[in-house]
Nucleic acid binder design. Structure first.
Length: 619
RNA sequence: GCCUGCGUAGCUCAGUGGUAGAGCGCACCCUUGGUAAGGGUGAGGUCACCGGUUCAAUCCCGGUCGUAGGCUCCA
């Protein structure tokens, strides 16, 4: 069978290593890099070490997490010998391991598995690598009945493969790994869920256990607090608590916006309209439902049908729009356009409906109808680069307004697409040219473009480091062709315009969700649904409080008057929980001096103030 | 769509094979207050829906819908 491990010698080696690590101080390396730049196990590092890799390094974390996933698999195999293990990589945050077993893992199982993991870590098993012929590994895993490992091995072409052994547990793995299981100090299994073998929905569904690990208990606790914070900021929870929106059983994926949510959206859109007007955009609106023939012509019928809703009326078939472009194009075609108008920027806050699989719906982030802050820009080919730079600047303006950091991705031609190779080539290079011209770093996303053209996507990073796709810029040579769009060029000939489809916020619904979580419900004053609440101390101050409210309302400040019969403390608490930016307390003293006592949501009591001063604060 | 869990008052959640409870919220009454919870009284539930087992189902079983976390897919 597998080569017998010379236990005492290896153990001695491991002890030496641990002493060496102790000498190096608190931080112990997780792997080493040799002179020729290869990352290797500490157990095999040999004499010449270029540098050490630590947990703090990105690669170090992945090694640490990967070793923890092996620990997880070992524990599962001890508790559930019949479970087949498949793959268990490290991921962006933590690791998972997929198992094939008829026994569904429960919360209690996770606890038991964790306990077993602790025991295995205490056993401090040496994690040893062996390089063996592929055939030999195949033979071993076949004998063990580990059919998934066999499948993986059968696809490998290398004559030699590496396996890692810790105690009785053996896994096919490239490594590197920690020197021993005892090096895994703090970990937690977070969840269990289904996952298709190799991510293919035709394959069997496996059970995936997710987890995370750290070098210290403190780091783990900090991470768990971070998860709690994310839960506290969840837009679904805050949306209900702050009465911003709701989702109803009657409309899965179709959100309902309440007055306060609507106030935020309208305030946001006021800003949006103002900025778009400044930058030369005109606004249009097109119908939600249009005849089937339009969608056949645009290509949506062939390329997007499974995501569309339909309606049949008087024997005529209509499709509910999943995108705004075909409707927008009809507006363009309603008269002849001149090159002098270009770039012709037509914006539309268009409500689109897309049938999404029920399992993907998520609050406002993933819905079945949403409002795109869309625009279609018609231009001449030589204007492309400049216009794309303009749009990127507009997106940058909005993201900065909210303090979002963002990444840019360039997506290329997908499989199910239309148009010739040359057109795609030209469109894609126009986009990368614009990106390079403004010197923005970007990542290429092969095959992720729209069916009619390549695109630049903006991914926002919120305050919890999560990324959300919002803005997109899509270059399109196909749609103008399909619809035979023309314009009168300088020389009087009819030419074909190029089209840019773009959004900045993406989906208004999703953007609101992101804002809620980003601000944890404490919206900046200009965006807050209620900016000021006036609290009279006793009934006799009601009249003065009402006058203050009136004054503020006339200045277009969103103000509420609290008329409840409650103690001041209770009223303040309630307003604080509603995250209202400013609370005005008025009692005998304020009435007498014609002032208001201002309480800032974050800073607390600011003391008495003239009303005029308050106007400045609120804006 | 697939896997697993969940669905009890507006919200957060207890609970039982013999048709239900708490806290918060809400309404009313008392209290007229100075920067995060004053006191009392009361209303409010087809226990998601449909079917089955049972003398009897909110509870057990099956299905449907919704929902949570993933997978696949996307703004």
């Amino acid at each position: 069978m597998m080569g017998c491990i010379r236990m005492p010698i290896v153990y001695y080696f491991s002890l030496l290593l641990r002493r060496e690590e102790r000498i190096m101080g608190e931080k112990q390396p997780v792997a080493a890099v040799t002179e020729d730049g290869r990352m290797v196990d500490l157990n095999r590092k040999g004499e010449k070490v270029e540098k050490y890799i630590y947990f703090d390094d990105k690669e170090g974390k992945h090694i640490y997490w990967h070793s923890t996933s092996h620990l997880l698999a070992q524990a599962v195999k001890r508790l559930f010998p019949e479970a087949k293990y498949t793959i268990g990589p490290s991921i962006e945050e933590g690791f998972y391991y997929d198992f094939d077993t008829p026994h569904p893992f429960t919360e209690d199982d996770l606890k038991r598995i964790e306990k077993t993991m602790v025991n295995i870590a205490r056993e401090n098993l040496v994690i040893e690598r062996e390089d063996i012929p592929r055939e030999k590994a195949l033979e071993y895993f076949k004998e063990q009945g580990e059919s998934y490992k066999v499948e993986l091995l059968e696809e490998l072409t290398e004559p030699m493969v590496s396996i890692y052994r810790q105690g009785e547990f053996v896994d096919l793995c490239r490594g590197p790994h920690l020197p021993s299981t005892g090096r895994i100090n703090a970990f937690k299994l977070l969840s269990v869920s289904g996952a298709y073998w190799r991510g293919d929905e035709h394959n069997p569904m496996l059970q995936r256990i997710y987890g995370i690990s750290f070098e210290t208990k403190e780091q783990l606790e900090e991470y768990l607090r971070f998860l709690e914070e994310a839960k506290r900021r969840d837009h679904r929870k805050l949306g209900r608590e702050l009465d911003l929106f709701s989702l109803q059983e009657e409309g899965p994926g179709f959100p309902f916006f309440h007055p306060k949510g609507m106030t935020i959206i309208n305030t946001l859109l006021e800003k949006w309209r103002e900025e778009h007007r400044k930058r030369g955009y005109q606004e249009i609106q097109t119908p939600i439902m249009l005849d089937r023939s339009l969608w056949e012509r645009s290509g949506h019928w062939d390329h997007y049908r499974e995501n569309m809703y339909f309606s049949q009326v008087e024997e005529r078939e209509f499709a509910i729009k999943p995108m705004n472009c075909p409707g927008g194009i009809l507006v363009y075609q309603s008269r002849l356009h001149s090159y002098r108008e270009f770039p012709l920027r037509m914006a539309e806050l268009g409500l689109v409906h897309r049938h999404e699989l029920s399992g993907v719906l998520h609050g406002l982030m993933r819905v079945r109808c949403f409002t795109q802050d869309d625009a279609h820009i018609y231009l001449e080919p030589h204007q492309i680069t400049n216009e794309i730079i303009e749009v990127m600047d507009l997106a940058d303006y909005f993201y900065r307004l909210f303090g979002f950091d963002y990444d840019i991705e360039l997506s290329t031609r997908p499989e199910n697409s239309m148009g010739s190779d040359q057109i795609w080539e030209m469109a894609t290079s126009s986009l990368s040219k614009a990106l390079e011209k403004v010197n923005k770093p970007y990542k290429i996303n092969e095959g992720d473009g729209a069916f009619y053209g390549p695109k630049i996507d903006f991914h926002l990073k919120d305050s919890l480091r999560r990324r959300w796709q919002c803005g997109t810029i899509q270059l399109d040579f196909s749609m103008p062709e399909k619809f035979d769009l023309t314009y009168a060029a300088e020389d009087g000939t009819r030419q074909r315009p190029v089209m840019i489809h773009r959004t900045v916020l993406g989906s208004i619904e999703r953007f609101l969700g992101i804002l809620i979580e980003h601000y944890a419900g404490s919206f900046p004053s200009w965006l807050a649904p209620v900016q000021v609440q006036v609290l009279p101390i006793a009934d006799r101050h009601m009249e003065y409080a009402g006058a203050i409210k009136q004054l503020l309302s006339e200045k277009d400040i969103r103000t509420e008057l609290n008329q409840e019969k409650a103690t001041l403390g209770a009223k303040i608490r309630k307003a604080q929980l509603e995250k209202i930016p400013f609370i005005l307390v008025v009692g005998d003293s304020e009435v007498e001096k014609n002032m208001v006592a201002v309480r800032d949501r974050n800073k607390g009591d600011l003391g008495p103030m003239e009303i005029d001063k308050l106007f400045e604060l609120v804006k």
